[in-house]
């Protein structure tokens, strides 16, 4: 079963790279992008030959997918650096704020979701209004206003910036506000989603059974939390594409040299190899993360194991 899951993941990733290649090849002329608008037809043809663009598309497709699957993503046209190096350099700063932000949002949303589902009343109403308001604010608004209020006005955090190598200032101060805002952006929809999950789980007959046997509320909630592992992890794995990229807006406003900033710069410079590389690597990270979530559900929830052992 696990071999099958891995094969599906690899096939999906190959499909991603083929899709990206075909779309880019159909819509963009690499030679024209490299040489600029005023290039002569002869120069364009020579450039195409140099890049190997005059070979049949099927050959190039297979070559591209094969090299992408071994993570050879080519070189950045503007910087002359391998794309993999750029990605590795940018992944650190993104994870430094995106991962804490994601964990914070998930934990707060889970706790608030349980609270709202258990006390259907004022708490539930207030949390619903808060989450709806948070959802209505576009991430741009949250980031711009958050930076203004918390950094400019209150002066609790540095306004922007990122310590480069050799900078004595601690990283923590620069990470806190981006992580907080990133958590705030995700909190609204997550809260509602988890509330819906826990309302459903708490209404399940076995919860009544646990209570009838005299189990304390605290332990009932713990059981419910474990029972809800599958839908919660499904939500996490649906969130993964956003987690691995972080927020382009946060990185832009706070000047963080992460993946989002890399992407925005590559789009501005028309650096196709980097854009393709970002798309492919983030898809790879997402697909790997989804496989891990499946594994975690398999380990946490015995219900998913039973039919597999009996049937397949």
């Amino acid at each position: 079963m696990w071999i099958r899951r891995l094969l599906v993941a690899a096939a999906t990733l190959a499909l991603v790279s083929a899709l990206v290649f075909l779309v880019v090849d159909a819509l963009a002329d690499r030679a024209a992008l490299d040489l600029g608008r005023g290039a002569s037809p002869e120069a364009l043809a020579a450039r195409r030959h140099l890049l190997g663009l005059d070979r049949p598309i099927v050959t190039r497709l297979f070559e591209h997918v094969a090299s992408a699957m071994s993570f050879e993503l080519g070189e950045s046209a503007r910087l002359g650096v391998p794309v993999v190096t750029l990605l590795r350099r940018a992944a650190g700063p993104t994870l430094a704020y995106a991962l804490p932000g994601f964990l914070l949002a998930t934990i707060v949303a889970l706790l608030a979701g349980v609270a709202a589902a258990r006390r259907r009343g004022l708490v539930d109403r207030v949390l619903l209004v808060v989450s709806t308001l948070l959802m209505s604010c576009s991430s741009v608004i949250v980031v711009v206003l958050g930076q203004y209020l918390l950094a400019h006005r209150m002066r609790w955090f540095p306004v922007l910036g990122w310590p480069l190598a050799g900078d004595p200032r601690p990283l923590l101060g620069f990470v806190l506000l981006p992580a907080l805002l990133w958590a705030l952006i995700q909190l609204g929809p997550d809260l509602r989603h988890y509330r819906a999950i826990f309302v459903r789980e708490l209404a399940a007959p076995h919860v009544e059974g646990l209570r009838a046997r005299g189990l304390g509320e605290r332990r009932v909630v713990l059981r419910v939390l474990r029972g809800a592992a599958a839908p919660v992890l499904a939500r996490v794995s649906a969130r993964l594409p956003q987690l691995v990229l972080g927020s382009v807006v946060v990185e832009h406003v706070f000047n963080i040299p992460g993946l989002g900033a890399l992407l925005v710069a590559a789009v501005r410079d028309a650096d196709l190899a980097v854009v393709q590389g970002v798309a492919f690597c983030l898809a790879a990270a997402t697909i790997a993360g989804q496989a891990l979530c499946d594994l975690a559900v398999y380990l946490l929830d015995p219900r998913t194991r039973a039919p597999a052992e009996a049937g397949r």
């Binding site: 999906t12 990733l13 499909l15 991603v16 899709l19 990206v20 594409p241 956003q242 691995v244 990229l245 382009v248 989002g260 992407l263 798309a279 983030l282 898809a283 997402t286 697909i287 989804q290």
Partner: peptide
Amino acid sequence: ALAAIPPV
């Protein structure tokens, strides 16, 4: 495959 690539 489409869902795996971040929308941005």
